[in-house]
Design a protein around this nucleic acid. Structure first.
Length: 401
RNA sequence: GGUGAGAUACUCAAGUGGCCAACGAGGGCAGACUGUAAAUCUGCUGGUUUUUACCUUCGAAGGUUCGAAUCCUUCUCUCACCA
């Protein structure tokens, strides 16, 4: 009984909301007492196989469920991906061809299995059952819900009230995602808090289709991105990807604000809540410098995705570049045949988007050549080797023949 | 189908014939200060080695004009009301 309680506590850590918690408790109870297994579902967009730490909040929780008897149903929304989860911006997308879908799925596997247990994970494609629905099945699906309730979805409601356009196809998205739960008979569905409406749709449809159970819903908070304000997302560029190089990963974690660090600790670290709490007290009372706490977090996360040695190296590299102000050990190299105008060189090395921008940055003392700030916009680089730097973190090496 | 309103840079949003590469805000980038944190202050934020210049841009295509983001025509899209 104690095990059950502590397992439940562990599962509830960091979650933002559980709907039908009794059911979750029951599933765990049956596992501990009778060894019964159950299914935990989560859906992913087929077009973005670049997972970032925001996704891992969800994945880590799913891996915990695996520890307690769950088989994860990892759904790749290759059909729903054609619609795109309504945001008001995206238009209907082209259906991805089979090859791309499979390629993306492979890429998902590589990333996901750093966290999930492959033996307890099924990778499923929702086109495989949605396409079987046919037009009459699709029609039937639409009869289970009405427009007034659909407009309760926050996103739709806002757009409807403000007079923005809503495409009919967008209404299909929640229905189809919910239908996934009917097709695979999931016991629990997981998702971000922004998915609440869609997740509840799964319960509704399981009832409507008499599946014989209604999935519980476990919602994880959305991890804030590097800016500390918006949710972590690739399109906003405020993300830490699980495939980011160790140095990048380390640097990005160090760059988050102190406040945000605790949020990351809570949602990403494997330290227990009480360990985090005592760490926080030590930082507050000045026993531990906040930067040290942040470094430890960075090391933990880099270790998880790259290993001990890489994490240690990343830390050394970081200190070298930023604390001691030395050059990074790994700088992209470029070659040029003739002597080159500095602004053009910066563009060619990918440090600046245009020569105009390069000129502006030179004017602002943002550009260094061989560790020295330059101010001459007309500078020519004659034959030799140069270390070019823009701002604090963009470096390149250029050899001029 | 009818009537009316609208579409400006990453986002919001000014500008209704020349002073417009286009006010302002947010965001972003950079500098100072730091712990590559936060906060604060400052500068920049279409492109181009003619840089107090030139070229391209205000939904699309044409037109009027010495000159158009601004006026006219057609088209595309969005919204509101009516049906």
């Amino acid at each position: 009984m104690k095990m059950l309680e502590s397992a439940l506590e562990e599962i509830k850590r960091g979650v933002s909301e559980i709907i039908d918690e009794k059911r979750v408790a029951l599933l765990l109870k049956n596992y501990f007492e009778k060894g019964e297994e159950y299914f935990v579902k989560a859906g992913f967009d087929p077009t973005a196989p670049d997972l970032h730490l925001g996704h891992t909040v969800l994945l880590q929780k799913m891996s915990l469920f695996q520890k307690y008897g769950a088989t994860v149903q990892f759904i790749i929304g290759d059909f729903t991906g054609m619609i795109g989860d309504p945001t008001g911006k995206n238009e209907t997308r082209k259906k991805l061809d089979r090859q791309t879908v499979i390629k993306n799925a492979k890429s998902y596997e590589e990333q996901v299995f750093k966290i999930l247990d492959p033996k307890k994970t099924e990778i499923l494609f929702n086109s495989s059952w949605i396409e079987k629905l046919g037009s009459s099945g699709m029609l039937e699906l639409t009869t289970t819900f009405n427009v007034a309730r659909m407009l309760e979805r926050e996103d739709f409601e806002k757009r409807y009230k403000s007079g923005a356009s809503i495409s009919i196809s967008e209404f299909l998205y929640p229905l189809l995602q919910g239908y996934d739960s009917v097709a695979i008979k999931s016991d629990i569905e997981m998702g971000g808090t922004d998915q609440k409406f869609n997740l509840l749709m799964g319960r509704h449809l399981q009832r409507a289709y008499s599946v014989g159970k209604e999935q519980a819903v476990v919602m994880m908070p959305l991890l804030e991105g590097l800016d500390g304000v918006n949710k972590m997302s690739k399109s906003l560029g405020n993300y830490i990807g699980v495939t980011d190089a160790p140095n990048d990963m380390f640097g990005k974690i160090l760059s988050i604000s102190d406040d945000l660090m605790w949020r990351y600790y809570e949602l990403l670290s494997s330290l227990s809540i009480s360990q985090i709490e005592s760490l926080k007290q030590k930082v507050d009372s000045g026993v531990i410098h906040p930067k040290v706490a942040k470094e430890n977090l960075a090391i933990e996360i880099v270790t998880r995705y790259h290993g001990d040695n890489e994490a240690a190296d990343a830390k050394k590299e970081f200190e070298k570049v930023h604390s001691k102000n030395q050059l990074p050990s790994d700088i992209a190299e470029f070659e040029a045949q003739d002597s080159k105008w500095i602004a053009q060189a910066l563009v060619d090395c990918g440090l600046e988007p245009s020569t105009s921008q390069a000129r502006r940055d030179i004017k602002q003392n943002a550009v260094s050549v061989n560790q020295k700030k330059i101010s001459d916009q007309q500078l020519q680089l004659d034959s030799g080797e140069y270390i070019l730097q823009v701002g604090k973190r963009k470096f390149a090496k250029l050899k001029v023949k």
